[in-house]
Write a protein that binds this DNA or RNA. Structure first.
Lengths: 178, 178
DNA sequence: GTCTATATAACGATAGAC
DNA sequence: GTCTATCGTTATATAGAC
C-alpha cells in the first residue's frame, strides 16, 4: 500500500505513541497534538482509529513479507527456517518497541484476530518456522515468539547494542526450535 | 493485604476482564455489570480504577512472594534459582491468561513503573534468577520472561495440558538461563 | 453495601468553511 | 489538507438516599 506524506506522518506519530502508551491509551487527540494538527486533519487521512492500527501493523509486518516469500521458495526446509528466523530477529531488533506493541497489545491482538489476511500471514510464518510439527515444536515456537518480542524491549537489554542483541537472539532462538 | 468479600468479587471480575480486553479496554461499568452491581458499588470498594489494577497485580505477584523468600534463604545459588524458576512456571501455567496481562499490558506496565515496591520485587526476582551476572545472562533472563509469559497463553499451546506445558517450559527455560 | 442521579471530562467521529 | 465547531457516547468519579 502506497501512503501519502501526510499518512506517513500520522503512522510515524501513532507508532511511537502506541509503543509508549498502548493503543487503548493513545487517543486521536494525542496523535494530532504530536504532529501539530487537529483531530479533523488526522481523520482526513484515516477514517477511523482502527484503520490507523491496521495500517501501522501492515507496515510493521510488511517488512517480513519479502523474507517470508523467499523462505517459502527455498526447497531446503531447514535453510528456509533459518533465513526466516534471521529476518524476524532483524526486524525485531531494528524496531525494538514496535515489535512488542504489535505482538502483545490487547487492542492489536483483538483487531488482528478479526482480520483474516493477518491470520493467514502469521500462519504462513509459523508454517516455515515449525512446519507441520507436533506439540513440542509448537511450544518451542510459542516460547520463541515471546522470547524475541520481549527481549528486544526488556529493561535488562536496553543497553545492549543491536549487533550483540541480534547475535545472542539468534543463538538462543536456535536452542528453542531445534 | 486482607480483602473483604466484596473486594474479592471486584478483583475476580476485573482480572477476567483485564485478561480478555486489556486494562485500557475494561471499564468500571463492565466490571460492575459482570458482578451484577452498579458502578457506585465498585467505587465503594476501590476509590479509583488504578487501585483495582494495583490490587489485582499484588494478588497475582503475591503468589510468588513466598517462593521468592524461600529462594533468597537458600544458600546454594543454583538450587535457589531452580526452585524459584519452578515456582514462576507453576504460577504462569496455573493462571495462563493472567500471566501475560500482568507482564505485557501497557497500562499495567506503566502503572507498575511508578510503584517502587513492584520494581523492588521484580529486581529481587531477577536477582535470584541471574545474580549479578553480565550481558549474556541478562539477555537470557529477558528472553526467559517473554518465553514463559507468551507460551502459556499462545494459541499454539491452547490445547496443551498443564502438566505437559509445565514440563516443557522448565526444560526449555533451563536452556535459556544455564 | 448498594442504589439513583449527576458532574465533568474525554473519547471517536462528522459537517462545513477556507 | 487543515481548520473551527459540534454531535453523540462513554469514561472516571462523586453526592446523597436507603
Amino acid at each position: 500500500m502506497q501512503r501519502t506524506a501526510a499518512q506517513t506522518r500520522v503512522l510515524d506519530a501513532a507508532l511511537q505513541l502506541f509503543a509508549q502508551y498502548g493503543v487503548g491509551g493513545t487517543s486521536l487527540q494525542m496523535i494530532a497534538d504530536s504532529i501539530g494538527v487537529t483531530k479533523a486533519a488526522v481523520y482526513r487521512q484515516f477514517k477511523a482509529k482502527d484503520d490507523i492500527v491496521i495500517a501501522a501493523t501492515e507496515r510493521g509486518l510488511g517488512r517480513l513479507e519479502e523474507a517470508l516469500e523467499a523462505a517459502e521458495a527455498q526447497p531446503n526446509a531447514k535453510r528456509a527456517r533459518d533465513r526466516l528466523l534471521r529476518a524476524v530477529v532483524d526486524v525485531a531488533v531494528e524496531d525494538r518497541r514496535l515489535a512488542s506493541t504489535l505482538q502483545f497489545d490487547p487492542v492489536v491482538v483483538g483487531l488482528l484476530a478479526s482480520q483474516p489476511p493477518f491470520q493467514q500471514f502469521i500462519a504462513r510464518l509459523y508454517g516455515v518456522l515449525i512446519g507441520e510439527a507436533g506439540e513440542e515444536a509448537r511450544l518451542g515456537a510459542a516460547m520463541l515468539a515471546g522470547a524475541i518480542g520481549v527481549a528486544v524491549m526488556h529493561p535488562l537489554t536496553a543497553d545492549v547494542d543491536d549487533d550483540t542483541l541480534r547475535a545472542y537472539l539468534l543463538k538462543y532462538a536456535r536452542r528453542l526450535i531445534t
